[in-house]
Write a protein that binds this DNA or RNA. Structure first.
Length: 516
RNA sequence: GCCGGGGUAGCUCAGACUGGUUAGAGCGCCAGACUGUGGAUCUGGAGGUCAUGGGUUCGACCCCCAUCCCCGGUACCA
């Protein structure tokens, strides 16, 4: 008996092809991040649950969306100043802490930063507004427990973040837009195929406050509905703000917030006025003419002006970044400017349906995350690229270079192994990825078939005939694939894709072939 | 979570409405022909607890019930 082999639901194996795209994204984007002064840091996959700020499994609230479990090891409990808790007998209170697998890279950053400044903080050397500056980029897997998986969404996926902690200058937010734009172009997405949408939470919050939305909860609920506008339409938004709506596709009734019509009108009025998103200058104009007289809104507008000024000054125009006051982003922790990158295009999924690509990256200013841990307001802003999402886009849009496996040395005769090894050594020393075939199925057919599967560009044949003549037969598998459909005569086909090359010229020859 | 659809070969699906001897196709896989040679072409072959359990029936892939799983939509999403 054996064991039924299967992988954990929502997780996946990544083949060499996908991995090559992943690394392309990471390398090209990191290059840009570094150019802006961000340095590469990592943090563990596991964190203490209370530091990531999610509910624990056996707390009253369900741990929705996270993987969390008890640490097998007993450890002391601490108060907020790092003192060990004691019981009546003055023994240290031990517990199996809850551990959480990180669900993003931002929350661990807040922990990491807090830990770095902890000593200064505890000795009162850290004052609000004077927190040290920290800029890092980080990539790796994050984990979310989604009860139901949407197509193309997984429970483990990669993110690629850059963040600036310790600055409240919105120039950083402007720079974030530039970093995202540069990174995407460096990856190979041409200008015009993506657009960075910017907004400021303060605008919307200020407006809502001005029209009479006071409570934080109601505000969040409204934002959540407005965020769905592109999916359910403006009409749908209005309905959900009011009595609710019936979803035709599913027949489900979605209950609304029950706001009164006058309020709904005023809310909708704001969002309607920015339809057909015009250029940044025009949006800023419209915002200025709102005449709401709300301080928060004015502040948000001023910040956006400043961002626009910098971007425009550096020639990052409307073709790269636009202002969209209706863009919300789901996450609650954003406090100021927010960004979202949308890929401008559609693709066909595996069932041939047209799909919008949508958001491939997002971010914004979050001035409250460190505060949750230290109780000290430390401003921060940054953004994250969804690596796997973007990889999917690149593949769908044909923007990735053709994947290539190693050159394969065919083993005609195991007795000649030393010859094969020598040949491989020469190629490897020249920096060419080279594999010698070690499979048990020795047929020439099997070996070439294997090379084909691995996407090898070339197969090198060295048998008795070649050995006698001191040559190698080089078979161009790529060319062969191209010519396959056009040629019926096997002999002719073979002549076109194979060439005998003198042994001492093989490295040069192969190098040349691979460069094409 | 809610509404709807589905589960038949490794993959995509037909058969089901109207129950009846050996459950089919394409692709893929394997072997052979051409060739010390991946593709194409031709020939042949292997591969199925018809999701699982129970019921109805002389007889169930097909009808009924339950369970599990998958898909679409919707809700949630730091």
């Amino acid at each position: 008996m054996g064991i039924f082999p299967r992988k954990v639901k929502g997780f996946r194996d990544i083949d060499s092809r996908l991995n090559s795209v992943r690394w392309l994204i990471i390398q090209k984007a990191s290059e840009v991040y570094r150019r802006y002064g961000f340095e590469h840091w990592d943090s563990p996959v596991l964190e203490y649950a209370e530091l990531l700020g999610k509910y624990l499994p056996d707390a009253d609230d369900v741990a929705d969306g996270i993987y969390s479990f008890r640490n097998p090891e007993l450890e002391p409990q601490f108060d907020e100043r790092g003192n060990e808790l004691r019981d009546e007998q003055n023994n240290v209170v031990m517990t199996n802490h809850f551990l959480t697998m990180r669900y993003d890279l931002t929350a661990p950053l807040a922990r990491m930063y807090s830990e770095m400044v902890w000593q200064r903080f505890i000795h009162n050397q850290l004052k609000e507004g004077r927190a040290p500056l920290f800029r890092r980029y980080q990539f790796g897997p994050v984990f979310r427990f989604e009860a139901k998986l949407d197509p193309g969404r997984f429970r483990e996926f990669w993110q690629l973040d850059f963040d600036t902690v310790g600055s409240d200058d919105v120039a950083v937010d402007a720079e974030n837009v530039m970093v995202l734009s540069d990174a995407l172009e460096n990856i190979g997405i041409s200008r015009g195929k993506y657009v960075v949408r910017m907004n400021n939470r303060k605008l919307v919050k200020g407006y809502l406050r001005a029209v009479g939305v006071e409570s934080e909860e109601l505000e969040q609920a409204i934002l959540r509905i407005v965020d769905k506008a592109d999916k359910i339409g403006m009409q749908g938004v209005a309905e959900e703000l009011g009595k609710g709506r019936e979803d035709k596709a599913s027949g489900a009734f979605i209950s609304g917030l029950g706001l009164d019509n006058r309020l709904i009108d005023r809310i909708m009025q704001f969002f309607y006025s920015f339809e057909n998103t015009p250029g940044r200058a025009e949006v800023l104009n419209k915002l200025a003419n709102l005449n709401i007289g709300n301080e928060l809104l004015d502040q948000g507008l001023e910040e956006l002006r400043r961002i626009d000024e910098i971007l425009s000054g550096l020639n990052y125009r409307d073709d790269r970044a636009i202002l969209d006051p209706t863009m919300i982003r789901g996450m609650g922790y954003y406090t100021g400017p927010i960004f979202e990158v949308e890929y401008q295009g559609t693709y066909k999924d595996e069932k041939g349906r047209k799909r919008r690509v949508g958001s491939i990256s997002g971010g914004g200013r979050y001035d409250g995350l460190v505060e949750r841990i230290l109780g000290l307001r430390v401003p921060a802003t940054g953004a994250s690229i969804g690596v796997d999402r973007l990889a999917e886009v690149l593949i769908n849009q044909g923007l990735v270079p053709e994947y290539s496996g190693p050159v394969l040395i065919v083993v005609f005769d195991p007795g000649m192994m030393i010859e094969y090894q020598r040949l491989a050594l020469k190629l490897r020393n020249a920096g060419i990825d080279t594999e010698i075939y070690y499979g048990n199925r020795r047929g020439l057919k099997q070996q070439l078939s294997y090379a084909d599967q691995k996407n090898s560009p070339l197969a090198l044949l060295l048998g008795e005939d070649e050995l006698r003549q001191n040559v190698i037969t080089v078979r161009d598998l790529r060319l062969g694939k191209e010519l396959a459909d056009k040629i019926t005569d096997k002999q002719q086909w073979k002549e076109q894709v194979q060439q005998q090359v003198p042994l001492d010229q093989v490295v040069e020859y192969v190098k040349n072939k691979l460069q094409k």
